[in-house]
Nucleic acid binder design. Structure first.
Length: 482
RNA sequence: UCCUCCUUAGCUCAGUUGGUUAGAGCACCUGACUGUUAAUCAGGGGGUCCUUGGUUCAAGUCCAAGAGGGGGAGCCA
């Protein structure tokens, strides 16, 4: 077969250079045939759209066409032409086709039809080859890039916080232990405890549950930093919005108060969503149509009011509602569902807000993203700045429709004395936190930060319903396949 | 971890009150068709009814336990 530089399908479909000879390579989505001609829809991942390869049986031998099924990989050389059919503008009249690899249709699990997301989750090694997942993962790339671009353009520095941590005071959940000890022959101390001095690091270590504490150290010198890396939580969470391994973005900013923090969070979310609208249009349209199809089988009252793209545009164009926890409790107490006793969990100042409460505020009452601030100190982490009322802390949670908490953050406590007292009150070992406390001892400043769950952002942008479908290989309790 | 629902052909699903040889669409194979659009039409092959135990003359169907999965809740991002 002659050699010719490969053209990506995205570029070939945009070309108007009809009559030119091009080479495309990709994977077969469908093959349709009639007596004289076969049509092959070919996709190479460069776009959601396929190029239609037209194989005239006079030019392409039946022995080749017989080897081509859904999933096969091809190298096609042909002439770019204006399509005679109505489904596409451009097509490729094949002159020669090389089959790189066949896909035995008796064994290849993907077919040119709708598969359930649950089925594809078990075929995660092949699901990239579907329209839905190729769209999701192109958008995932775009969002990761946009995050770096947003922060870089604002003068933030990308800081790599450690994955393995010797601190067990991050306080964000159960941790995965990291060890090189032989679990069948654990070294013991005289007291019968595991002797961690024999472990790789000479102490007990875990995978990080948050890069925030290290991020603060960097922010208190570099000014504005962000982390973007994997995070691990060994919680036995079995929901559509939790993963044991997920990616988190954690900006930390010196000299930012809680209001600067909220402004940044809102600006960032709007920027990221606008970036998707501007750069992932084809993929968003595909996912939007997919959702519309899915909703046809739902009863009218369960269908969403806005389409995916309208929903994204709505968020970019409207101010987020900002109110304090105390105000939110009042709204909830005065709400219809509360008066009718429809909340499963009663509303009272001091409780942690339940999903049903957050959903009422975001989806029913305000119908907009909501930022809640100034929570009771008892239900929030030790590092949050205490308010003068001695009851609340300067926390902020950004709540999104359908997702719940997409961002959690706060202004940080900068007072050495207050922080030390809070650490004692919460029973955290002070000797583990000496380095964190020293930043308050030497040249402390007001500062703030937050954590954005990358996959939760992905859920919102793609409209997907399960967090396992917006990360390539989900890690959840009892599942670390692939 | 709790509540709830589900598991039947490669995939999506139907299967009545427990009753003889378990069905459909798609996919695959064969044939028809002069350019299709998840092509269409005709025919064909394809089953550990999740597993184990129980009730019964008889279990895909009823009961119990287990496994896997979905949805909701808690924990949170």
């Amino acid at each position: 077969m002659e050699s010719l530089r490969r053209t990506k399908i995205a570029a070939a479909l945009k070309s108007t250079d009809f009559g030119s000879k091009v080479c495309v390579k990709g994977w077969v989505r469908t093959k349709r045939g009639s007596k004289n001609v076969a049509f092959i829809a070919l996709n190479d991942g460069s776009t959601i759209h396929n190029i239609q390869v037209v194989a005239d049986r006079e030019n392409i031998d039946d022995s080749i066409l017989d080897r081509i099924h859904t999933g096969a990989s091809l190298n096609v050389i042909g002439t770019l032409t204006e399509s005679q059919g109505s489904g596409q503008n451009v097509e490729l009249m094949a002159e020669s086709i090389e089959v790189y690899g066949e896909a035995n249709p008796d064994e290849y699990p993907l077919q040119p039809k709708k598969h359930s997301l649950e089925f594809l989750r078990e075929k995660a090694h092949l699901r990239f080859r579907t329209n839905t997942f190729s769209a999701v993962f192109r958008i995932r790339h775009a969002m990761a890039y946009a995050i770096h671009k947003f922060f870089n353009d604002k003068g933030f520095y990308y800081m790599h916080s450690p994955i393995i941590t010797g601190s067990d005071a991050e306080g964000a959940g159960e941790m995965f232990q990291v060890t090189t000890l032989d679990l069948n022959k654990l070294p013991k101390t005289k007291d019968g405890e595991v002797d961690y001095s024999k472990d790789f690091f000479g102490k007990m270590t875990n995978l990080t549950v948050s890069g925030q504490l290290e991020g603060e150290l960097a922010a208190l010198a570099l000014g504005e930093i962000y982390t973007f890396g994997p995070t691990f939580r060994a919680e036995n969470s079995n929901t559509s919005r939790h993963l044991a391994e997920f990616w988190m973005i954690e900006p930390e900013m010196a000299f930012y108060d809680i209001h600067d923090n909220m402004d940044l969070a809102e600006e960032m979310l709007k920027y990221l969503i606008q970036y998707a609208l501007d750069n992932c249009r084809d993929d968003l349209e595909f996912l939007q149509n997919r959702l519309l199809e899915e909703e046809k089988s739902k009863p009218q009252n369960e269908r969403s009011e806005l389409s995916l793209i309208d929903k994204l545009e709505f968020v970019t164009k409207n101010e987020f509602v900002r109110l304090s926890y105390t105000e939110a409790i009042k709204v909830l107490e005065d709400s219809k569902p509360n008066k009718k006793g429809q909340f499963q969990y009663p509303v009272k100042w001091g409780i942690d807000l339940q999903s049903e409460h957050e959903r009422f505020l975001v989806e029913k009452h305000y119908k907009k993203p909501v930022i809640l601030t100034d929570y009771p100190k008892e239900i929030k982490a030790f590092y949050m700045k205490q308010n003068d009322d001695n009851k609340t802390v300067r926390a902020m949670d950004v709540l999104f429709p359908g997702i719940g908490e997409i961002i959690g953050g706060s202004q940080r406590e900068e007072s050495y004395e207050k922080l030390k007292i809070r650490i004692d009150e919460m029973g955290i070992a002070e000797e583990d936190m000496w380095w964190f406390l020293e930043t308050r001892k030497f040249g402390t400043v007001p500062h703030s930060g937050y954590g954005l769950g990358f996959e939760r952002l992905m859920l919102f942008v793609t409209g997907m319903g399960n967090i396992r479908d917006v990360i390539p290989f989900a890690r959840t309790p009892k599942n670390a396949e692939f």
